[in-house]
Design a protein around this nucleic acid. Structure first.
Lengths: 81, 81
DNA sequence: ACTCATTTGTCCGTATGTATG
DNA sequence: GCATACATACGGACAAATGAG
């Protein structure tokens, strides 16, 4: 799934994969994405790495995090007007 | 200097302190801010915490980082037009 | 060309706190 | 009280690029 030896950081790879799922409609607006623990297990990475991936998705505006609740797909997955 | 038990996260406190130094002119545009190691030692925190503080300053647009070189005070410390 | 020190980038593992259900 | 989940913080490790010598 992810390549630790590739030129792209693992947390970026994970963020890219989740972004694809969002764009593919597998993860829908206002629905939660997998928890940090779930991502950690799915991709075989440490919690910090899973967190970085989610942070990156927030930076991209694709998701929003509600403390103590989870991280959810933003209303507008990709574009605007 | 920083209060680990206060309501404000340590990395935010450190970012605030550095911001004050920038605004006070102690750290000048295009000049480097202390390295992560220096911040780590000065504030007695782990490197991850020092990094978080610098990240926050980047988010605020106060500094820019050049990989393997250092982090520098942005040209325009605060405003724009 | 090479070595050394510096500095940021990434990653792992762990612990504690806080909030929700 | 317990389980889940994010937030913060600590510690250590290795890689890559830069710059000084």
């Amino acid at each position: 799934m992810v390549d630790p030896d590739g030129p792209t950081p693992v947390y970026v790879q994970i963020a890219d994969i989740i972004q694809q799922r969002i764009e593919a409609g597998e993860l829908q607006p206002n629905r939660p994405i997998p928890s940090e623990l779930a991502l950690q297990q799915e991709f075989g990475v440490a919690r910090g790495t899973a967190r970085r991936a989610v942070e990156l998705l927030r930076d991209r505006g694709l998701v929003f995090t509600v403390p103590q609740r989870g991280t959810f797909v933003a209303d507008r997955p990709a574009d605007d007007a």
